[in-house]
């Protein structure tokens, strides 16, 4: 565990909590992609099956449980409790366009052809692209609430911090996991356009709107 990894985890946690609180406090999930949230729940479910097979640390197990519970809570709030506020007309990205190719890739490119390893690989690849329905939704409506942009910024920063962690781990421990690194870079690149808008608009007190 190094500082970049810890900051990455905390940033991830912050993102998840920002989103949950936004939905809970405003009693609304307008502007949030339910498709992305379902994909994230799927990501955590397929990645953290090792909760049952492998104990690493209290920190590790606790964080996994928190991520899992929060992501399912978000999906529950969106599709049940506050379903009336869910903006499904603008959330039209087809999940199968991500899940099917990512599933195929996980079968073909993995470290080990075992069920748990393939599911872990699937979750790494899926996480890289799971935000696309949300970005697609913002591009359709042309804007995002400020609180939603804070959520996206924290979520994007998490993987960027992990990349620094991987560089650090490579030089200090000689550790690297090519699958995680490549997927993590793809994931971070997808956020670059958003990061630019966040820094030039949201941090200057304006709402995030896309140029016409």
């Amino acid at each position: 565990m190094n500082i970049f990894r810890l900051l990455g985890d905390l940033s991830h946690l912050l993102a998840i909590i920002i989103l949950l609180l936004k939905i809970w406090r405003t009693r609304s999930c307008a502007g949030v992609s339910g498709k992305s949230q379902i994909l994230f729940a799927l990501v955590f479910t397929t990645r953290y099956l090792d909760l049952f097979t492998n104990f690493i640390s209290m920190y590790n197990s606790a964080m996994k449980l928190i991520y899992l519970v929060c992501s399912y809570a978000t999906v529950f709030l969106m599709y049940f409790k506050f379903k009336a506020t869910y903006d499904s007309n603008h959330d039209t990205f087809r999940m199968e366009f991500l899940v099917v190719p990512v599933g195929g890739l996980a079968f073909l490119v993995n470290h080990d052809f075992t069920p748990l390893e393939i599911l872990w690989t699937f979750s790494i690849y899926l996480e890289a692209v799971a935000i696309l329905p949300q970005l697609f939704m913002i591009s359709k409506t042309g804007e995002a609430e400020t609180i939603t942009s804070h959520y996206l910024f924290a979520l994007g920063s998490y993987r960027a911090l992990y990349i620094v962690n991987w560089v650090f781990r490579f030089y200090t421990e000689g550790f690297f996991d090519l699958i995680a690194i490549v997927a993590g870079c793809v994931q971070t690149i997808l956020y670059c356009d958003f990061f630019y808008l966040y820094i030039t608009k949201v941090l200057k007190g304006k709402q995030l709107t896309l140029p016409a």
């Binding site: 565990m1 990894r5 985890d9 492998n54 590790n60 390893e117 995680a180």
Partner: peptide, 10 residues
């Protein structure tokens, strides 16, 4: 490849 030995990341 003992991958799970190294899967301490989240």
């Amino acid at each position: 490849y003992d991958s799970f030995k190294e899967k301490d990341e989240l």
